[in-house]
């Protein structure tokens, strides 16, 4: 079964994404979810859920933050609210949330999402035994490993096919500390568009921003697996995520539509190189000019990574 998952930055965009052919919207609030394009109130989540459900689509809410005591206290009321709203799923990365759901009889389905820490089939099956209904794969997994993993896992494995890759999360305000030291002032939130570059490799471009979960740093290249979708389909990895944290507005909706067309072609068994090239060209014209794309670890050999 194919499933296209996409982040949404507004109620309006959520609706557009559903119309563009997205099956599941991925949204949330920054206090509980990590690196979302927008932080939504529970009212907004309810509104988006209603829109999605009316069109037969799903909503998954991000509850994948690393939680400290203060936040773990507020997570149960939040989850109860989400249950009332009848969201379809949540992502979870902190085992404390899993523990609390069981204790409080919260019936929400959860997808295990501990970001960099989800790298093998056995890990995922550990969480399956503890109730996970899906898992989000780390970005650092070469295809030859994905192939092996897919064979050993029965729940859907969500793989990023388009968007930015976070490579570092610190609880320290790293940008603020730097500008304080150099006696500057700047805003540090994601809209500010700050990025880092290695001294010894000026072509690198690591987006960086801060929020209540700390400082987030992203890889130079955003992921684009459009040219490799066939290989994913071959091994049964057909839950595809699109992350719009750095691709905004209509362009992201159009890119979502590109993947929806691809999905449709696979369903109808008419995926072709020609179509792929056509869609790829369109995608490249929509992707933000200042950001580069590649396939990340997907095209690497396991032995490339030491």
């Amino acid at each position: 079964m194919f499933e296209l998952v996409a982040t949404a930055e507004s109620v309006k965009q959520a609706e557009q994404l559903v119309d563009a052919g997205i099956d599941k919207l991925y949204i949330g609030e920054d206090d509980f979810g990590l690196r979302l394009p927008a932080s939504f109130t529970t009212e907004e989540i309810a509104e988006i859920t209603e829109i999605a459900h009316n069109k037969g689509k799903k909503v998954c809410v991000a509850v994948n933050a690393i939680m400290h005591n203060d936040r773990i206290k507020t997570v149960i009321p939040y989850l109860k609210e989400l249950e009332k709203i009848t969201v379809d799923e949540i992502t979870v990365g902190d085992p404390g949330v899993i523990h609390l759901m069981k204790k409080n009889d919260i019936k929400l389905s959860y997808i295990y999402d501990a970001q960099t820490m989800v790298t093998s089939a056995n890990q995922i099956n550990f969480w399956v035994k503890r109730g996970a209904k899906g898992a989000v794969l780390a970005r650092e997994i070469p295809y030859e490993e994905l192939e092996k993993m897919a064979k050993q896992v029965t729940i859907p494995l969500e793989i990023l096919v388009y968007g930015a890759t976070c490579i570092h999360q610190s609880l320290r305000p790293l940008v603020e500390n730097y500008v304080n030291f150099t006696e500057q002032k700047t805003k540090t939130e994601k809209e500010r568009g700050l990025f880092l570059s290695e001294k010894k490799d000026p072509d690198t471009h690591y987006s960086v921003y801060e929020d209540q979960n700390g400082t987030h740093i992203f890889a130079t290249d955003d992921v684009n697996l459009l040219p490799y979708l066939e290989k994913l389909v071959e091994v049964g990895l057909t839950t595809w995520k699109l992350d719009g944290v750095f691709t905004r507005g209509d362009d992201f909706v159009k890119i979502a539509h590109i993947f929806a067309q691809a999905k449709q072609a696979f369903k109808e068994k008419c995926w072709s190189e020609e179509l792929m090239n056509e869609l790829q060209e369109k995608l490249l014209s929509l992707h933000p000019k200042e950001r580069t794309l590649d396939a990340g670890f997907f095209t690497m050999d396991s032995s490339d990574v030491k």
């Binding site: 690393i66 970001q115 960099t116 820490m117 970005r139 650092e140 890759t165 490579i167 570092h168 999360q169 610190s170 609880l171 320290r172 790293l174 290695e198 690198t204 700390g214 740093i217 890889a219 130079t220 670890f297 690497m300 490339d304 990574v305 030491k306």
Partner: peptide
């Protein structure tokens, strides 16, 4: 400097 385990700078910058 990161949450331990949540940093893959080294993976992406030096494989």
């Amino acid at each position: 400097i990161s949450y331990s385990g949540r940093c893959v700078l080294s993976n992406h910058m030096s494989m």
